[in-house]
Amino acid sequence: MSILNISAYRFVSLDDLPTLRERMLEQCHALALKGTILLAPEGINLFLAAPREAIEAFLTWLHQDPRFAGMQAKESLSDDIPFKRMRVRLKKEIITLRHPTIRPEGGRAPAVAAATLKRWLDQGRDDAGREVVLLDTRNAYETDAGMFPQAVDYRIDSFTQLPNALAADQARYTGKTIVSYCTGGIRCEKAALYMQDVGMENVYQLEGGILKYFEEVGGTHWQGDCFVFDERGAVDPSLSPAPLKPLSSAEDAGDGAPHT
């Protein structure tokens, strides 16, 4: 497989969006990259594909901007470029929650590494002895492709519905450790900050999301594949392209995973 696919994001204050958009689009076209870059006052979110040399050249260029220095990308491979064109879009938020008091660029929520989460799931508790509750922050069509089977899955159609779902179910999380997760880390980071903002305790995000979990520990405790937002449809725990195979309702449910 000769095509490198990357996803990356960073919450950082950006105030030169039109100029930045033009510079990024010019650089991407010069390197024949395809995919999508989202820019907003709160940061950047990108999904790009090309031969490795072109991707590495773009990242070297990007990291010259101090705001993006050290920004790490999740990698996977494919035989073909899974995007038809290159787009750089300006948005109000790089992941829409519509809660303006949540400003991730001001500081991250605590994160748990993939290996640590695997250990917690192996032992059935976190290191403080608390029960661990996994919260899937993705949309229902994404969880249908695969999930941690014991996770809370609210069957939402949009990330903006998550606050109301949590508000109606806060008692579930009392006295427990909460780990929010998503595809690449962006939604679970914002969700964790929201939960902290409304007073929920012992809240963590899964560092790097499902893709980083697959990269570091494989598919342990996971069921199915991971939906991705390109023409591959999904990737399996080896990060190889996988045709979408929705879990059956029986397989999907798991213990303690409501579908409401």
Rank of each mutant, 00 (worst) to 15 (best):
D65P: 11
S238T: 15
N164V: 03
L134W: 07
S180W: 02
Q170P: 01
A234W: 08
M71E: 05
S238R: 14
S78V: 00
F47W: 08
R89P: 02
M200G: 04
N139F: 02
Y141L: 06
G35C: 08
L247T: 12
A145K: 04
A115F: 03
E105H: 15
T101P: 00
G146R: 05
L239C: 04
K176A: 11
L59Y: 06
E142M: 05
N202F: 05
A128I: 00
D255Y: 09
L14T: 13
L46I: 02
Q72F: 01
S78K: 10
L62C: 12
C28W: 04
V203F: 05
L193E: 03
V12M: 02
Y154R: 04
Q170H: 06
V152H: 01
L46K: 07
I210G: 07
T260K: 10
R108N: 15
P241D: 02
L193Q: 11
A140D: 15
G70R: 05
A69K: 13
L31G: 03
A49Y: 01
G185E: 10
T101H: 12
T36N: 05
Y173A: 07
S7M: 08
G233V: 01
T36S: 02
D127E: 15
V112M: 02
A140N: 15
G219L: 07
D255H: 09
P258N: 09
Q170T: 15
D169S: 10
Y141C: 01
Q161S: 01
S240T: 11
E207S: 15
K84F: 00
P243E: 06
S180E: 06
D16I: 01
G184Q: 03
A111E: 12
K34W: 00
E26F: 02
